[in-house]
Computed example of a mutant assay.
Amino acid sequence: MFRRATTLLGRPLLAARARRFSTDLPAAPTADSQFVEAWNKVVPNLDPPRTPLAFMTPRPATPSSIPSKLTVNFMLPYSSEKSGKEVDMVIIPATTGQMGVLPGHVATIAELKPGILSVHSENEVTKYFVSSGFAFIHANSVADIVAVEAVPVDQIDSSLVQKGLQEFTQKLNSATTDLEKAEAQIGIDVHSALNAALSG
């Protein structure tokens, strides 16, 4: 069964994957024609299921030259902080470490951790504290950043951060269940990152 699935399209599965992720797909793919053709040979009386390709739009073509600016879309569940903003650079607090994104950056998906997201535009630097989320860096010099929560660093009250850190430390020390310990540890991690953001 596995062997048949890997050669259903008449070629190895790896070759099919490489084709789907290329940047020169047709303008508006509605279905994977080779899959539909193979399906109709095996089950001619049943309509083929819609493949992921039917829901996807083609990836924008990689520009022939690197643009001078990075286009940033920075969104929260309840608002859009930046939409189509052209900037020089963004520094993202990724789980793998601080990640600087310039125009022409390789396509990447990064998970955000609690920390500072800084947006650099000419001589201006705007800093946000983000709790978590994801950054989608596209090959066409567009960065989509989606955070669960974010606040400008200059709006953070350091006394409340210290108070919250103490409260969550006490909760961790008095926690009796795994759930209570996990919730307290998350609170400590976020408040520690907030504290580091204010002191750094």
Rank of each mutant, 00 (worst) to 15 (best):
G100R: 06
A38W: 04
G115S: 04
S80V: 12
V148C: 13
E81N: 14
R20A: 13
K127P: 10
T95P: 01
L112S: 07
P103W: 04
K127M: 09
A197E: 09
E86I: 13
S65W: 05
D24F: 15
K113F: 08
L102R: 00
V146F: 13
P93Y: 05
T57V: 13
L112K: 01
S83L: 14
P49C: 04
K113W: 06
N123C: 06
I156F: 02
A16W: 07
W39D: 09
S174A: 06
F35T: 09
I137K: 02
E37P: 07
I188R: 03
A182E: 01
Q185H: 07
S80D: 14
P26M: 14
T57H: 12
V142K: 10
N73V: 10
T51H: 11
T126G: 06
L179A: 01
R17Y: 07
I186T: 08
F74K: 15
A27G: 12
R19F: 14
S174Q: 03
I109C: 03
P93N: 07
L198W: 15
S118G: 00
A107R: 00
L25S: 15
F55P: 09
P114W: 05
S159H: 12
T108A: 06
R17V: 12
Q34F: 07
Q185R: 02
F136E: 00
D47S: 14
L70C: 03
K41P: 10
D47M: 12
M75Y: 13
K85L: 15
E180W: 02
A16H: 04
D47C: 11
N140T: 05
L25F: 15
A143V: 03
L13A: 03
P152V: 11
L70W: 07
A175H: 02
A182P: 03
L194F: 04
P44L: 04
S64T: 15
L70Q: 03
K69M: 13
L9G: 03
E183K: 05
A143L: 04
A5L: 00
G10H: 02
E167H: 14
M56H: 15
G84Y: 12
H120Y: 12
M75P: 08
P29V: 12
N45Q: 14
P77L: 04
S158C: 10
G100M: 02
D88T: 01
S80F: 10
Q162H: 15
I186R: 15
S22C: 13
E111S: 11
V190Q: 05
I145R: 01
S121H: 15
A28V: 15
A147T: 05
V90Q: 13
Y78D: 09
R59T: 14
S68L: 08
T95M: 03
S68W: 06
L46I: 07
L160N: 09
S159I: 13
L13V: 05
K127Q: 11
S83F: 10
A107S: 07
Q155N: 04
V106P: 06
S121K: 15
S80A: 14
K85G: 13
P58E: 14
V90M: 10
S79G: 08
T7H: 09
G104L: 03
A135T: 05
L102G: 08
I156T: 11
P77A: 07
V146R: 02
L179F: 00
M89K: 06
M56N: 14
P44I: 09
G84V: 12
